[in-house]
Design a protein around this nucleic acid. Structure first.
Length: 459
RNA sequence: GGAGAGGUGGCCGAGUGGUCGAAGGCAGCGGUCUUGAAAACCGCCAGGGUGCAAGCCCUCGAGGGUUCGAAUCCCUCCCUCUCCGCCA
């Protein structure tokens, strides 16, 4: 346990994770507040409809009522048992003792029975309420992937006075990428970075990190593996058919899909000081994704791969601060991508494309000259406000200074740099007629050169 | 991986199956004294959940077991420390 900063209580297995203490109503994996299900039913149904998710709010409400009822019963049964045990401390004659023991046994059985009922009710609620997505910000445009709202475009799509190549062609030609070796050694959609691409990869990390440090983020290099409970707490499904997450076969661990998982897990089951908020965390990790169900989707080269490195932002705020922080994360992302001299657009993601935990999500899409016919914008980063949806499962709270009450925090995450896609965008936008690639000014100090390609030192 | 020792409140640290949610110390908070401070002395002080509140429930690393009753006994797991082995 650290003596300074926020407490980390039982990080290994957060208390009450699997089986919440009978005195607690909150911590199942239902990630909406189960107590608000009935009151906000309209809103929840609206959210499901807008997201295109089928969910049965009514049965979740009924299920919560069951849990609450069983919980009350258990509370009473425990109280009776405690009273009985106190009475047993006094001296009793043999007959009285025998009666006392028999009664105790009956009380114990009653408690066990109610506990079993409660466990069943909880599991039921977990399944039903866990299927419900977060609320949706009122300004989020309604619709699917194509129905985003364009907030702004910065820069003009790059034009070339020569035949532009896509990053794959460039990468192979310039000795920067090797997908064939990746496939041979590991599998499809794994790759080697070589020569200047390696320097570019490291430069991007450091460039982004320096900006984040300047913005007040505490840099972390996180584990690349996490426990399934933490993965689930963030809202990823660690197992199952269409999971995006790899699991190890000889350990109860998952390869992380993003440092959002490990940074989010950092304060699981903690109660933070209000003064420490907002907590701004920067995390570098490798990211592993199965990309199940993504077969054939715009999957050329580096755009969709099974492994990449990412610098991630993760912020924990008070509820009233999360929307402003969301704008702030977006501003930082724009600063980072603007510095790479890339044309980009910012979009407000539509309801159907949000993902269950997000209340609102902004994406930055960089211009990718080699994408599709004649180029198109492609996602390079995204910033989400997940409000208290993740915090509820992770049990990350803070203590209000004035009321001394504990409340769930809001959690936000955003990409600082996803290296595979950033490299793709840099290569394609900064390519020259001779196939070499110009290094954006902001990266030159980190690269130690202004050009990538054969003939430049270290290629 | 092997052998051993441990995990108790913000920290340190006692704890005999019932009188223990838990001694003592430190820190913290409030007070007396003081021009002010220090020292000394007195008092308060684990956390979580629920509730307007009184209260009630839960928690001694986690899970399970024995028992009328477990911080205390048994099993499993996790974590920490020391030594050995292996290793970047």
């Amino acid at each position: 346990m650290s003596s300074d900063g926020p407490r980390l209580v039982g990080l290994a297995r957060p208390k009450g994770w699997r089986c919440a203490g009978p005195g607690e109503l909150l911590p199942f994996s239902a990630m909406l507040d189960p107590r608000c299900l009935a009151d906000r039913r309209q809103e929840i149904e609206e959210s499901c409809r807008k997201r295109g998710i089928k969910a049965d709010v009514a049965s979740a409400v009924a299920s919560y009522e069951q849990v609450a009822a069983r919980q009350t019963e258990l509370n009473d049964a425990n109280r009776r048992r405690n009273e009985h045990q106190k009475a047993g401390k006094q001296k009793l004659d043999d007959e009285q003792r025998a009666a006392h023991t028999a009664e105790g046994r009956a009380l114990k059985e009653a408690v066990a029975r109610i506990e079993a009922d409660l466990a069943v009710a909880r599991a039921d609620l977990e399944e039903r309420a866990g299927a419900l997505p977060n609320f949706i910000h009122p300004d989020v445009p309604e619709g699917g992937e194509e129905d985003f709202r364009l907030l702004r475009r910065v820069g003009e799509p790059t034009t070339f006075d020569f035949e532009a190549r896509d990053h794959l062609e460039l990468g192979i030609q310039q000795g920067l990428l090797d997908f064939e070796a990746g496939a041979r050694v590991t599998g499809n959609k794994f790759y080697y970075l070589k020569n200047g691409a390696v320097l570019l990869e490291l430069a991007l990390q450091r460039y982004a990190l320096d900006i984040l440090i300047e913005e007040g983020f505490v840099p972390h290099i996180t584990p690349d593996l996490a426990r399934p409970e933490i993965v689930a707490g963030i809202g990823y499904n660690p197992r199952g058919e269409e999971t995006q997450i790899y699991s190890l076969s000889n350990a109860d661990l998952c390869l992380v899909g993003t440092a959002e998982i490990t940074l989010g897990g950092l304060h699981a089951d903690a109660i933070l000081d209000e003064d420490d908020l907002p907590l701004k965390l920067a995390g570098i990790s490798h990211c592993f994704r199965t990309e199940a169900g993504a077969a054939g989707r715009e999957s050329k080269g580096l755009y969709r791969v099974h492994q990449f490195t990412k610098v991630e932002m993760f912020v924990i705020t008070r509820p009233e601060d999360s929307e402003a922080m969301h704008e702030n994360l977006l501003a930082i992302e724009e600063r980072i991508f603007g510095g790479l001299e890339l044309p980009y657009q910012v979009i407000d993601i539509a309801s159907g494309d949000l993902g269950a935990p997000a209340f609102r999500k902004y994406d930055i899409e960089a211009w990718m000259p080699g994408r599709g016919e004649g180029g198109s914008y492609g996602e390079v980063s995204s910033a989400s406000n997940c409000t208290d949806y993740q915090a509820r499962r992770l049990k990350t709270r803070f203590r209000r200074k004035d009321t001394k009450k504990n409340e769930l925090v809001h959690m936000l995450n955003g990409t600082a740099v996803a290296n595979s896609r950033a490299i793709l965008a840099v290569l394609e936008n900064h390519q020259r007629a001779d196939g070499t690639i110009g290094v954006p000014k902001a990266l030159q100090p980190y690269m130690g050169r202004d050009t990538i390609g054969p003939g430049t030192s270290s290629s």
